[in-house]
Design a protein around this nucleic acid. Structure first.
Lengths: 220, 220
DNA sequence: GTCTATATACGGATAGAC
DNA sequence: GTCTATCCGTATATAGAC
């Protein structure tokens, strides 16, 4: 279950004054909506169902959000929060291969939880109709991981652990690296295929292999 | 626009006898449904809309399909047909790098058409509720491409153009290869992000680079 | 098989009292 | 801000004539 950042978050923006009132109903609404949206999809989630689970009436929903889309937007905005910065980049790196493997493992684990997969599906299905939602999710969730890895690669390049020929190569390399990890595990899981657990370790190993073989300085 | 395999396909299964009646209304229904499902998603597609576009009445829909899900199943089953075997593997290979680049380009082009992306979104959104639909799409569309590439890699291995250490490596390698191609282009396109056209060529080049660097026999 | 007309239910959003 | 009750559109599916 995705846990929202803080039930009584200050949020410190000017326009919302009611969020100062502690564990507000607004938060309860968003939590309820998150749960139902993930399980049933956008269209199959009714305002009645959200109100029922949040233990408020439908009018209260409309007192806090102008419509269903607004609730969904709030759900996505808060739901992606755990993913932004979800990859913990180690500060000290002794063994490059081990470091990348650990990173790969935690990345795969992060994007393959049932909630992550459900969120991915729901946002993707709605993104043609609500492009800004897709943009929020992509930038906060997916692109953020890529930026982290890109920074790591640049750092490794400065320390002569990786070698890149041009300035845009670290970004492309991180993109390819994360893509390899996602493709091996994420995509089958999205479609509900058996997740071929036995192969995961070897796939990760090989993805790291390809990366080091191409960008590693000396025979690591 | 995805074109269905054959308007008057024999289909040669025992149970459906009405499909012998040439360019049947059934086909018109499926074509109409395909178009609307892709543009509006499953839930937002009404039986009225399908009937209207197919120029038949709603009763005719229910005469041919038991319900909405059945229509969707037929749409997906036929809609993935162009993707099965959609990758044309060259028979003679002179330049390995060029061959892989061409393959990569045609793969990216195939999976990034608006209809491909829309189909991917719709099927993915429905797959939790209709697992067999996700299975059909995944196996016919995604896994099929991987099988083609795996066979190619095995063939290249026998001809000493690629080198693999164990028997399962060609499959993993093809998986990683296709994942790199998809991630660079497919995923941003799915979420409606600007498709960063300029970078595509370089990304493909680099994906091929990684593959050859790791599995190529000698310095290609 | 195909049509028109309809049964039945549910969804998003609002009105008005408190 | 929160509730109960309701408006109104639309959706899936069916009935019955031809």
């Amino acid at each position: 279950m995705i846990s929202l950042p803080s039930p009584n978050s200050p949020k410190s923006t000017a326009k919302d004054s009611e969020s100062l009132a502690r564990p507000s109903k607004k938060t309860k609404i968003i939590e309820a909506a998150l749960d139902i949206f993930l399980h049933r999809g956008y269209a199959m989630t009714s305002m009645d169902a959200i109100a029922c689970r949040a233990a408020v009436s439908k009018s209260t929903l409309y007192a806090h959000f102008s419509n269903k889309r607004a609730i969904f937007g709030a759900v996505v905005s808060l739901g992606v929060a755990p993913f932004a910065g979800g990859l913990s980049i180690p500060e000290r790196i002794d063994d490059l291969r081990l470091c990348l493997k650990n990173l790969a493992n935690s990345y795969c684990a992060m994007i393959c939880t049932p909630d992550s997969l459900a969120m991915y599906r729901v946002v993707l299905a709605e993104s043609p109709k609500q492009p800004e939602i897709g943009s929020i999710f992509y930038n906060a969730g997916i692109a953020d991981a890529r930026r982290s890895i890109t920074n790591l690669f640049r750092s490794l390049s400065h320390r002569d652990l990786l070698y890149f020929q041009s300035d845009d190569e670290p970004e492309i390399a991180s993109d390819l690296f994360l893509s390899m990890l996602a493709g091996a595990q994420h995509q089958p899981a999205l479609f509900g295929m058996n997740t071929q657990k036995p192969g995961l370790a070897k796939r990760i190993e090989m993805a790291v292999d390809l990366l080091i073989c191409r960008f590693g300085r000396k025979g690591h």
